[in-house]
Simulated assay, not measured.
Amino acid sequence: MTVLLDLSEKFGDLKEATFLQRKNRFVGECLLNGKIITCHIADTGRLKEILVKGRKILVSLNPPHLKTRTKLIAAEMKEGFILLNTSIHSLIGEAAIKQGVLGFIPETLKKEVNIGKSRMDFLVDGNHYVELKGCNLREGNVCLFPDAPTERGRKHLEELIKLKEKGFRTSILLMILRDAEFFKPNAQTDPQFTRTFYTALKKGVEFKAFKVKIINSKIVLNGTVKLL
C-alpha cells in the first residue's frame, strides 16, 4: 500500500458528521454532535450526487477565527469515503508523481510554474509540464470531468498544446477519486473542454490517470484508470 498523504497529519483528528445542505459554493451546513454547524467546501464543483442531505461526511475543526466551524474533507459513498477537499490535490499529485504515476520516477519536480499568463501545476525534470485535475463524478464504472463548465480547465489544455508545439513534453494527469475503471471528458456538461481535450491528445499531449482511496485516514494509491 503506497501512502500519498496522511489526512490526520494535515487536518488533525477527523470527525464524522452528517451533511445537511449547501448554502453556497463554499459553505455548507452539517450536524456534528447534535449541533448544526457550518463547513467550508473547498471543491466548487456541483457535487450534486455527492452532497445530499443525510450523507455521512468527514470534517476537521477550524480555528475559532475562521468564519466556518469545520472543513469538509470527505464524503461516504458506496465504495467508502472519497476525498472532497481540493486544497490538498497538489500535495497528493506531487507524491503520486514521485511514486511514478507518469511512468517514471522524476529527478526534479517544481510546483506551480508560471508560463506566460498561465500557471502549470508541475514541471518535471525541467522539460515536462503536467496539469493535474481531480475527478469525483462517476457514472457506472466511468469517471467524468468536469462536473461543471470550466473555462480555466480548457485554457490549461490550450497551454499544454502550445508548450508541446514548442518542443516540451506535456501531460494531463487525472486524479480519480472514485472507484472506476475508465475516464472520459464530460461532453454533455462541457463540450468545449471535451473538444479541446481530444485536440490536445492528437497534438501529442499525454494522458495519465491514477486512482486514490481513503484507508484509515490516509490517501493511498489505488491503481490506474484507462481512457474510454
Rank of each mutant, 00 (worst) to 15 (best):
V59D: 05
R55Y: 03
E139Y: 13
E151F: 13
K110G: 00
H40L: 14
E139W: 06
K117R: 11
R138P: 02
N114W: 07
H89W: 13
L137I: 03
E158F: 04
C135V: 15
C39E: 14
P185A: 05
S90E: 15
M77C: 07
K48Y: 11
D125Q: 03
I73F: 04
G54T: 10
E94H: 09
R154H: 06
I172H: 06
N141T: 15
L47W: 03
A75Q: 04
E181V: 10
K155G: 01
I161V: 15
I50Y: 01
T70L: 04
F168I: 01
A96Q: 07
L157T: 03
E151D: 14
L83P: 09
T150Q: 10
S171H: 12
R69N: 13
I50V: 13
G80R: 10
N62H: 01
V124Y: 02
V101Q: 08
E159A: 04
A180R: 06
P64Y: 02
I176T: 05
N114L: 09
G54P: 10
V124E: 12
E107V: 12
N114C: 03
A148P: 00
P146N: 06
F81C: 05
K48L: 10
I115T: 09
T108L: 07
T86I: 09
K110R: 11
G116R: 06
F104M: 13
L66H: 04
T170W: 08
L173M: 08
T68S: 12
T170V: 05
L58F: 04
L137P: 00
I88Q: 05
K78S: 12
E139G: 02
L109M: 12
R154P: 00
F104G: 07
L72N: 04
L66S: 01
H128S: 09
S171T: 15
M175N: 01
S171V: 08
A42F: 04
E151T: 14
L173T: 01
G126R: 12
I97K: 10
M175E: 11
E158V: 12
A180P: 00
D43S: 11
K155H: 14
A42N: 08
F104P: 03
Y129A: 03
I82R: 08
L84H: 06
Y129C: 05
K98C: 04
I82Q: 05
L174Q: 03
T44P: 08
E79T: 13
I41H: 09
I115V: 15
K184Y: 07
I82M: 09
V52A: 00
K71L: 14
M77N: 00
I50Q: 01
L47N: 15
T70Y: 07
L160G: 12
R119M: 03
L51T: 01
G153D: 11
R69M: 09
G93V: 04
L84P: 11
S87D: 15
I172R: 05
K166S: 05
L144K: 15
T108Y: 06
Q99D: 14
P149V: 13
R169Q: 11
I88H: 02
E107R: 05
